[in-house]
Amino acid sequence: MSTLHDPIALVYHEARLLDEQRFDEWYALYTDDALYWVPLTRGQPDGLLHTSLLYEDKLLLKIRVERFKSPHAFAQQPRSHGQHVLQAPQVDSVDAVTGLTVLRTPFFYMESQRDESVLLSGVAWHHLLPTASGLRIRMKKVELVNCDAALPSIQLFP
């Protein structure tokens, strides 16, 4: 199966695109109605009436990706670099009707900007939807183990 048809391969591929900063290709992995959610608290039921670290639709994701291209994104001087280290993704559920596949992937993520680095860890939940051109990410929910810590800037995508 190609990357865009094998759910587990897609999870690895997504992390690779992020870490190699191939943001346009990464952005294209998401459905138009996608959501990238990093809750602020454990078991947070909602992202609309409770603050999250990220609760981004495609427009907000696009603003981030395009901002990186601006010479005036001063906080990106020098550039940040991220590295995901994934535990093997497991298929958590598959919806028999829609084909929506949910995967659970424990991970470590380090984001570094010269002398400052931040280490995040947790579980990523990918909700993948079959489309005419292969699987796409409908939602990625990243539950951080250190979501309640006082955090420095997190500039890329955990």
Binding site: L53, L54, I63, F74, A75, L151, S153, I154
Partner: peptide, 9 residues
């Protein structure tokens, strides 16, 4: 937020 593009700058 620590993830805010405005906050970062």
């Amino acid at each position: 937020a620590p993830t805010s593009v405005v906050g970062h700058d």
